[in-house]
């Protein structure tokens, strides 16, 4: 089943690369020290800035794509029965998968994501990423960031929001990559994201 058009695959690949680069350089900045670093601070700053600008552009492409292409339907949450569906999917991940049960929400052209995927993708793409991008620009251009909020440096608050968003996205990435091994074979979903074709369960 052809599920992932070229633009989505290209965006997904770039998004993954930029996120990975930003996580690594971000950690180098946050935990910088006088010892021998993985990436020197000044280079980490330059790479993090470049990666941030690239991620902003890539997000912009995703945002426009999800406005003007049919892909937007996959991000539309239907609140009725959402908690029940999420619980069903959670139950499958926790127990069903060990019992060899079938996916409770098989992938179709109309329903690319299961309920847990849908909610997490919406939260990541429409809350965490905008937050990290906006606060990232705030840190890149500190002159536009409010200097003090209630007696506290505006940069601190901006940076804390940035770091927390970054951490949530990092944890999401780890879980996302692991859950992608739950396809019909451990590598099938990764292959699908390269070829565009999803291989379902027998």
């Amino acid at each position: 089943m052809y599920l992932y058009p070229k633009w989505i695959r290209l965006w997904h690949l770039l998004n993954a690369l930029f996120c990975l680069m930003l996580i690594i350089t971000g950690l180098c900045l946050q935990y910088s020290g006088k010892g021998r670093p993985l990436i020197p601070f000044d280079k980490a700053v330059a790479l993090h800035n470049t990666g941030g600008i690239a991620l902003s552009l890539s997000y912009f492409i995703f945002f426009l794509g999800n406005i003007f292409s049919p892909n937007k339907k996959h991000y539309r949450l239907k609140y009725k029965g959402l908690w029940k569906d999420m619980y069903t999917q959670f139950n499958y991940y926790m127990f069903g998968v060990f019992k060899g049960q079938k996916h409770p929400f098989p992938v179709t052209e109309e329903n690319k994501f299961n309920p847990l995927q849908k909610v997490s993708y919406v939260l990541i793409m429409y809350i965490a990423l905008p937050l990290i991008i906006i606060t990232g620009w705030g840190l890149l251009l500190p002159d536009i960031t409010i200097s003090r909020v209630f007696g506290v440096s505006g940069l601190i608050l901006t940076d804390i929001i940035h770091i927390i968003s970054g951490f949530i996205i990092s944890i999401f990435m780890i879980i996302h990559i692991y859950l992608c091994t739950l396809g019909s074979t451990p590598g099938s979903l990764f292959k699908g994201m390269i070829s565009g074709y999803h291989v379902g369960e027998d």
Binding site: R76, Y126, I127, P130, L131, I134, T135, W137, G138, I144, T145, I146, S147, R148, V149, F150, G151, G154, L157, T158, I161
Partner: peptide, 27 residues
Amino acid sequence: NKHYFFLIFLVPVLFLSGYLPAVSQED
């Protein structure tokens, strides 16, 4: 959903552009 997106963007934009009150008592 439009309202939802609007709110998501509004808060950080307000925050960064300085609409939220900035008070430093020491100043």
